[in-house]
Amino acid sequence: MITTIADLKRGQRGIIKEISAELIPLKLLEMGCLPGNEVLLVQTAPFRDPLYLNINGSHLAIRKETAMHIEIEILP
């Protein structure tokens, strides 16, 4: 099982490893969601969806289904 943004706990950080370009909208990449960048889970809505993230300094919210396609390595 791969670890994705959807597995982060609130306040936890991770480094983006891999994104499947086909499934991720270009707009998200342009907002800084690129391999090597750091991501922090700021807040979740009820049922952990959508997720409020800080990616590379940009604050944005995405749905869980999208978050599940962004592979990360959780930082200790």
Binding site: P25, M31, P50, Y52, S58, H59, L60, A61, I62, T66
Partner: peptide
């Protein structure tokens, strides 16, 4: 294809 991105501004 459903996707959703929204900026959370200051």
């Amino acid at each position: 294809k459903s996707y959703f991105v929204i900026e959370m501004p200051n």
